[in-house]
Nucleic acid binder design. Structure first.
Lengths: 129, 129
DNA sequence: TTCTGTGCAAATCTTTTGCATGGCA
DNA sequence: TGCCATGCAAAAGATTTGCACAGAA
């Protein structure tokens, strides 16, 4: 479990309880969309508003604390970590992290010097195929 | 230039002038989002409505005539063609097609047997980097 | 005639904005 | 006091739906 308070203290953003809850939700869920964040954080802060979620997602993105995962159904967000790939299921929308540690992907990405090392592969997950 | 009338005739959809114009727009533009399609088709059919664009995009997707390109800013659409990769600029949003003909990508995709051979690489395009 | 597709308007959903309030340095 | 950040409500934007009409088989 990461120390989000410390991460926020180093940024321009204050470590409010709501922000910490959003980050905790992303960490435990892996990838969540706005609704999922809202529902799960609401369980802890019943008074939180959707607008707060949206505003925080924008500022956490700007501060490079979270990353947007482009998603065919609904964009998702994740706590920033090592560059890695995503496998996204075209049917159920499930997102799976893929390690980028093999020679193959390294080499592929070498061909795109300006790439941010974000690779996405679409297909069907085990359940849906 | 593809024969879209023929393609539509083979599907369950009729080859209406509006549909043909949407496909022609996608073909000439490469990748367009809803607004771009609307604006450009409107130049030819001033009476076309946004609802018609939306409805057609849905049915053309269902018939596998077009493909949705997941895009951080606005989803784009393209006429279906050989499986290929996309390079998407995180800054300006430009989409660039990448051929999937090299051994590297072939091999990468072999590792994901259920992949639809859709690969996305994010980064900065030449202009933005 | 029948069926599908179109275009308008309304409805719904999603996201953003403005503003008053509250908490913390 | 002076900032941010929050939460509400309203506004703005995007997408979907219902319906009447038009056009092709």
């Amino acid at each position: 479990m990461q120390n989000f308070k410390e991460i926020l203290d180093k940024s321009t953003l204050k470590a409010t309880p709501q922000r910490l809850a959003i980050l905790k939700e992303l960490e435990s869920n892996g990838h969540s969309n706005i609704d999922e964040i809202y529902e799960n954080v609401k369980a802890i802060f019943p008074s939180i508003s959707l607008a707060t979620i949206y505003k925080n997602i924008i500022s956490l993105k700007e501060e490079n604390i979270i990353t947007e995962v482009c998603h065919p159904k609904k964009n998702k967000y994740e706590v920033k970590k090592e560059p890695h790939a995503h496998f996204i299921c075209r049917k159920c929308g499930e997102v799976e992290d893929i390690d980028l540690d093999n020679a193959l992907t390294d080499e592929l990405i070498q061909n795109y010097p300006n790439s941010t090392k974000e690779l996405y592969i679409y297909g069907l997950c085990d359940k849906c195929s």
